[in-house]
Write a protein that binds this DNA or RNA. Structure first.
Lengths: 247, 247
DNA sequence: TAGATTGTTAATCGATTAACAATC
DNA sequence: TAGATTGTTAATCGATTAACAATC
């Protein structure tokens, strides 16, 4: 399962009884891939007007049928015999992901990792703006990091209100993560990207996704371990230097 | 599915015909959760000798039956009527994840994000050691970052050989990520944690997992969008301030 | 028209849950 | 023994794939 959301957390788009584009439920797995499709479309923009599911799927590293199925949840935007109009599809995916406004995001915890998040160049082009940095450490408060002043966590309510923040990235030490998370929820933040290695408890209307850096390495370590053992035991051999998926 | 590995990439532990502990195949989804269980066990260590699947599952934020099923893939280490011995279970999971050596990891691309990875405190306690930093920028080469000198990417083969590196974190600009990835593969790196927002192509014996920061925010944005719409349309109401999962 | 490609269906596969017999 | 808790089975659920009719 994808990290973060509780299993079976289906994105229920109930049938809109009247009005435009009756939206169907979009599976979690599909939502997670939309962002990859959007990136691939961005890479194509300018070079061609349309793209086939086959070509786009190759760029995104997925099966073409799966791509078509995913896109079919958004509506019917392809042209049989031709493909998908890149501009139209980009717009539709952006709209579905709610990226049309340019969302304000707060970074909470401005240590080693939080500072990197504050300066990460990849957010702006993909629909987000780092609108505030917050920390509890008075030695950090007032410092300017990547052009933004660090605010004290006690100002959280005011900052969230003024900057219209609904998404926060939580990069505090693990020991205080749940407490800070509670504060975020209390002031109305409803989506949290959690970098602290703890399982957060939140009310059901709040979405949490996690980025567990050491956890990711541990998963890779498992596969390293298995590969090393396979070499020794002559286990399931992988063709040495198989050509692999050229996306 | 969890990001990174191609779908259906089952962790095949074929039946060992003779010798200790006949290992069964461990599902990808299970492997991804083992790291969470290990963390929860770490939090319990010292306070009690044993823990029930119910208590551990609550800490890990999963269903108790699922936890027992996951652990059953490693073997039969629980005691009916009692629970799991924390030390034994910790050892078994660590062994399964291949964490017993302390693995050397390289950071490739020592920019904004790479520097934060180099200094991230959470790796050491969870089985990893940042053993090398590499970059192509001559202005960075030679600088000491979090105690380690930045080496030139041309020294990659030597560094990987000397430090016995098999896992790399890739934090270069997206434009050069595939090229650097190819270099990593060429010198024998077989696991890559990719932070660049591109789909990497690798031979089949190489494992790639991705951390797509903006992508994670886009998934949260989708849910924000849905929640905002639900408020307006009076759609599927979430009980305001439902108590949620206290882990 | 003929070729290309979508949108969708049915089949398959994998993951999760509920339930309970086994057993400490 | 009685109560607690594991390990496993069967049922369910969700996600992916293969295949193809619809149609540009």
């Amino acid at each position: 399962m994808s990290p973060g959301l509780p299993p079976g957390h289906a994105a229920e788009l109930p049938d809109v009884t009247e009005g435009a584009a009756a939206a169907r439920a979009i599976p979690d797995a599909t939502v997670a891939r939309l962002s990859t499709y959007l990136r691939a479309l961005g890479a194509l923009a300018g070079s061609t007007a349309t793209v086939s599911s086959d070509a786009l799927a190759r760029l995104a590293g997925v099966n073409a049928g799966l791509l078509r199925k995913d896109l079919s949840y958004l509506g019917s935007y392809g042209i049989r015999g031709v493909g998908y109009d890149i501009t139209t599809l980009t717009d539709q995916i952006s709209r579905t992901l709610g990226l049309t406004g340019g969302r304000a995001v707060a970074v909470v915890g401005v240590g080693n990792l939080g500072q990197a998040l504050a300066g990460y160049a990849g957010f702006g082009s993909r629909g987000f703006r780092i609108a505030a940095l917050l920390d509890a450490d008075l030695a950090r408060v007032g410092q300017v990091v990547h052009g933004l002043p660090v605010r004290h966590i006690d100002d959280l309510a005011e900052v969230v209100r003024n900057e219209l923040i609904s998404i926060a990235m939580l990069a505090t030490p693990a020991t205080v993560a749940q407490r800070v998370c509670d504060q975020l929820v209390a002031v109305g933040v409803t989506s949290i990207l959690n970098f602290a290695p703890v399982v957060l408890s939140v009310p059901s209307q709040v979405d949490v996704r996690k980025v567990d850096l050491a956890g990711e390495l541990q998963i890779l370590s498992f596969h390293e371990h298995r590969k090393a053992r396979d070499v020794n035991t002559g286990g399931p051999a992988v063709a040495p230097l198989a050509t692999g998926v050229r996306a």
